[in-house]
């Protein structure tokens, strides 16, 4: 019987997350991995994995459709979802940073124009310092906005910094660091305490191995 449903963010760190889960004993058969089904049971049958867009992971978990999820801290900060975040999985490291062409803030603007996929994080960051900003929300290729002059600067994920430098941008400041988190639904944490705690236990061991390596 399926004990736990785990939502996994597709894309950037899906493979890393699946490797981590496999080491923690949650393995998917090759056939399941090759299939295009979006909900798959693991080999033990105790876990069901669902694959959704990163920003949808908090949604599934907050509503309790998935008990747990694996998703970046950047996505959690942006979603503002009410979830438990008991474990740093130490994978998918990146930074959320402000970047601009000159590598510094332009002087004397009435309102800083910032292009981003992260309007909430951006508003909170500049709001906390009392800097007025005009946020331009984009859904991808954010670097272009600063390179072509749509915005003075951008707020985006920085992994290696290569995309930034190839588009002539430099990091002005790092807002926060991000890595993958295990998130848990509040009700599941209580009502499926034993299963959640087993999952946390085995993932914790594996992340510590990973962290030490």
């Amino acid at each position: 019987m399926t004990e736990l449903t785990i939502a996994v963010a597709k894309g950037r760190m899906q493979d890393e997350a699946l490797r981590l889960l496999a080491r923690a004993g949650i393995r998917l058969s090759q056939a399941a991995l090759r299939s295009r089904r979006l909900a798959i049971e693991d080999e033990s049958g105790a876990h069901r994995l669902i694959f959704v867009k990163p920003s949808d992971v908090p949604v599934y978990v907050e509503h309790g459709i998935a008990d747990c999820g694996i998703v970046g801290r950047d996505v959690l900060l942006e979603s503002g979802a009410d979830l438990l975040q008991p474990l740093d999985l130490r994978i998918g490291y990146c930074r959320i940073a402000v970047a601009s062409g000159a590598g510094e803030f332009p002087k004397a603007t009435g309102a800083l124009r910032v292009a981003t996929k992260y309007p909430r994080i951006t508003a909170a960051h500049f709001g906390a310092r009392g800097v007025p900003v005009e946020i331009i929300q984009l859904s991808g290729s954010v670097e272009l906005a600063a390179a072509l002059g749509l915005a003075h600067c951008i707020v985006d994920l920085v992994e290696t910094g290569r995309t930034l430098s190839e588009n002539g941008l430099k990091v002005v400041e790092v807002i926060t660091e991000s890595s993958a988190r295990l998130v848990v639904n509040r009700a599941s944490y209580q009502l499926k305490a034993a299963a959640v705690s087993r999952l946390m236990g085995s993932l914790r061991v594996e992340t510590e191995v990973e962290g030490a390596a």
Binding site: E62, H63, G64, D82, R186, A187, Q190, L191
Partner: peptide, 11 residues
């Protein structure tokens, strides 16, 4: 105290 019921995602 908080009251949780299986099937509800929040208390």
């Amino acid at each position: 105290c908080k009251i949780y019921v299986r099937g509800a995602g929040a208390h």
